[in-house]
Amino acid sequence: MGELTRVEFTNLDKILYPDNGIKKSQIIEYYIKIAPRMLNYLQDRAVVTKRFPDGIQEEGFYEKDAPKEKPSWIQTFPRYSKTTKKTINYIVCNSLDALLWLANIAAIEINVMLSRIYSYENPELVLFDLDPEPPADFANAVEVALLLREVLEDIGLKSYVKTSGKKGLHVVIPVYPKYTFKQTRVFAYSIGRYLAKKSDLVVSELKQSKDPGKVFIDYLQNSLGKTMICPYSLRATKYAPVSTPLEWKELKKTLRPEKLNIFNVPKRKKDPWEGILKENQKLEVN
């Protein structure tokens, strides 16, 4: 591949999604095609990957610290962890080559932090992770997301939605990086509580997150060092679904998240989240 990329691709024939026969070459091809959109969301953010070198039928493992075999041209962000008492060198995926290198080491799921490395303690995104607990399903998550959008709109905030790629939805609001994680967390939590009062379907407390038939509005991801699945990352489940940014008008109860997958997401015409990173908002209600 020489002049096109610094990445030396290996084991391209290896099947990583055995149920669908998807090979590593197809995963790399996906990330090549989606890179122009996905790199926007990776820019200057620490990533945590989940790698599946032997395919998704195996456990896979989370990787925070950049592996030793990392090439020198991959950017990292060192951060001392008080809990583990060592420095973690987070990968910062700022280039096409870095993304392809991750794809080649079977880092199928790529998670990003809600803050950027130069304002690490001040998030730029507030995340509402809508997690339906069976028998509640994706359609119920859609219902709650639409409700959440309305509530946010009422207080003058523009929100964006994406599928998690699994059974849930992520609603985010871009904000100025001037709040602490504690502030964004409290904000998300209070919105969740308000919705829980309004709708029987919604629960807002962690201890209720496994209540059957409810949709939990998870606010806890709004914490220093926590991550969310990056927009356009593949998920390591059957059909190779993608965490896909959507237009609000696309969000219907009949939508099937697994139909937004490795094969058809690159064909989507435009990125519904385009511009989100320039639309920072204030959380103070006027």
């Binding site: 591949m1 096109l4 990329t5 691709f9 391209l12 024939d13 090979k23 070459s25 790399i28 091809e29 090549i32 095609k33 890179a35 122009p36 096409l96």
Partner: peptide
């Protein structure tokens, strides 16, 4: 063959 395909996609992305 698949490396060739990747190169085509890569050129387009670049």
């Amino acid at each position: 063959e698949e490396v060739k395909e990747l190169m085509v996609a890569l050129k387009e992305t670049i």
